[in-house]
Structure formats: C-alpha cells, structure tokens
C-alpha cells in the first residue's frame, strides 16, 4: 500500500511537468493550428533562465590570496560574488540560494518575448502549410535552440539546487500512520506539484473569466466568425503563443532542482508531452492536463520492480501502449471534441 502511494506521489510531479508542457502545446494547437515541436525547447530555455540567473547572481570579483596556492602552485584567486559585497555575506548568499524561485520573475518576460519572436518571426509563415512542414520547421528550430544553449553552457548537466530551506524531504508515512521513513517525498517535488496546479488554474481562469480569454475561446471554436466580427484574432493568438511559451518556461525553471538541466532536456519531455496531448484529445485543455497527470502516474507504476519483473521493459513502452489503445478505441482522445482526428 505504501509503495503504491509513493508511486502516485512520484507520478504527480512528473505528471505536473507533462501537464504544463501539454497545456502549452494544446493552447498553440487549439489557437493557431500549429504542431509546435519547438515547445520542448521552451521548457529547456526556461530551465536555462534559472541557470543564467544563478550565474548572474554569482558574478564575482577576484582577489589574490598570497598565503594559498592553486593547482599549479600560483597564488590562489578568491572569487567573491558582487551581491555578497553589496548586501553583506549572509544576505548575498541567501539571494544566490533563492535563485531558482527568483528566476520565475526573470523567466516570464524572457519567455513571453521569445514566444512573440518565434511566432511573428517564423511560425506565422507556416500557418497555411501542411502539418508535416510545421513539424519540420519547428523541429529544426528546436535543434538550433538546443545547439545555441549547448554552445554557451556546455553539454554536461549544471546543478541548480533548490533553496536550502526546501532541500529535505517530508515523511508522509508518519502522517498516514505507516512506518516512519516508508513514504518519503522531497519538499521541492511537492512545491512543483502545487506550482503546476496554480499555473494551470491561472491559465484556465484567464481563459474563462476574462474578455480576452472569451475571445480566444471563441476563436478556437470558429476563427473565421470571430474575425468577421472585427476582432483582430491573430494578435490575440500571438499573445497566447507567448503565454504558452511562458508556461513551458516556468515548468522548466521550477524543474531545475529536480534534475540538473542540460541542453537535451526539452527533447526528453517533448515526445512524451505529444503523446499526452494525443491521449488527452488534440485541442482539449482539460484533456491535456488530465492525461499529463494520468500518464505520469502510470509511468511511475510501470517502473516498480514488481511490475518490471512481471513484464520486462514495460516501463519504457507503457505510455506509447496507452496511446495506441486510445487511438484505436477513441481516436479523438479522452476529452477531445467529436470529429477532431476522427475524419
């Protein structure tokens, strides 16, 4: 029982990342009709916003300590971050320690701007082209972005830890009456899950309760009619592209303490997020979110050693198996609109 609870918890944080990426993918597909393979790169660039801020905050000046030597026997160069000299050692260290949460503020304008740039500069030229062309161009863009990040940050993962205050883990076992230490869950993963819920809630509220959101929803159903009413729907869809990029970016920022980011992390999530979108139903926002959490939990269960002993290799194919079954039985996905992907 405790093992099952632990795997559900495990699935929730992975599912949160899937859900956030799938939400952005669905927003873009639902509004602009574009299959955006560069969306995983947005997740990755978000993570590197956190890395960049961490590095900016750690910018240091060098002093020479004659009493100590470096590996070559030369006097040791001591680096002191500027923030420490400005705000004092303790406050400076605390600012660097909190660089990941601070990066949320840093990442939002960067990601929205990048989203605008991508949509206006490249993707809008492909609206009327077949999906295969859109996939090729966005996939190409993803590779370019990946290589740029690799050029500046290298290929190895870069540790970007959570603030010291959240570095431990919580003992759910004791709370639920199990043995101590039987269900341990890291604080940061819980924060990630809550953060994902807040972001998802905010996007839904934005679409549901604002005039802007109402127009966008109307445009998703019938773009032409909304346009005929004299509303500049393209402009609003561009804004939605920016929002989708920001959602993926924030998912990336908060993911950095869970796994040290590297240039390839976007691709790792992208393919699975597409499966999530298809399972949830192309164009359905609640479907994408639901499928994200469901598949995250399912993947966790499939990785249990008891399951692998029974069905070797199941952990690597489970998500795709589910996708095949869903596509065969219910091509429109769990919550897809009738008719979509069914013609």
């Amino acid at each position: 029982m405790d093992a099952i609870l632990l795997q559900i918890l495990n699935g929730l944080d992975k599912g949160s990342a899937y859900a956030l990426i799938a939400l952005g993918l669905t927003l873009i597909f639902g509004t602009l009709g574009v299959v955006n393979f560069a969306h995983g790169a947005m997740f990755m660039i978000g993570a590197f916003c956190a890395v960049t801020l961490q590095r900016l905050l750690s910018l240091s000046y060098v002093t020479i300590d004659e009493s100590r030597t470096d590996f070559l026997g030369n006097p040791l160069k001591i680096r002191t971050p500027y923030v420490e000299s400005w705000f004092g050692p303790e406050a400076g260290q605390a600012i660097i320690d909190w660089s990941v949460p601070l990066a949320i503020v840093f990442a939002i304008p960067v990601m929205v701007g990048l989203g605008f740039l991508m949509e206006r500069g490249l993707i809008r030229h492909f609206y009327k082209r077949p999906h295969a062309d859109q996939i090729l161009v966005t996939f190409g863009l993803a590779i370019v972005l990946q290589e740029i990040v690799k050029f500046f940050f290298g290929a190895n993962p870069i540790p970007t830890p959570a603030p010291e205050a959240f570095s431990g883990s919580f003992d759910f076992g004791v709370l639920l009456g199990f043995e101590p230490n039987s269900i341990i869950y890291p604080y940061w993963r819980m924060i990630y899950f809550v953060f994902a819920l807040i972001i998802i809630g905010a996007v839904f509220a934005f679409l549901r309760f604002t005039t802007f959101g109402m127009v966008v929803r109307a445009g998703m159903v019938d773009r032409e009619t909304v346009g005929l009413l004299g509303i500049d729907i393209d402009r609003r869809f561009t804004v939605m592209f920016g929002i989708a990029a920001a959602v993926a970016g924030l998912a990336g920022v908060m993911y950095t303490p869970i796994n040290a980011p590297n240039f390839h992390m976007g691709m790792d999530f992208l393919v699975l997020s597409f499966v999530v979108v298809v399972v949830g139903g192309m164009g359905s926002l609640p479907g994408g979110v639901l499928a994200g959490f469901l598949l995250g939990i399912l993947e966790s269960f499939a990785s249990m050693s008891q399951v692998i002993d029974l069905l070797p290799g199941i952990n690597q194919i489970i998500i795709f198996l589910v996708a095949i079954v869903v596509l065969l039985v219910r091509p429109r996905g769990l919550m897809g609109r009738k008719g979509v992907m069914e013609e």
Partner: peptide, 22 residues
C-alpha cells in the same frame, strides 16, 4: 537484494529510487 536495469535515456530516476525505500 535487487538489481534493476534503468533505460539509458532515463532522466528522472525517482520511480526507481522509490522501491529502494521499500
């Protein structure tokens, strides 16, 4: 007590770490 193979492409090992706790 146990040996478990993990895919080379795996990035999040939490679901493999959890059974170690058990």
């Amino acid at each position: 007590v146990n040996t478990v193979k993990t895919p080379l492409t795996q990035t999040d090992f939490s679901s493999y770490i959890a059974p170690v706790l058990q």
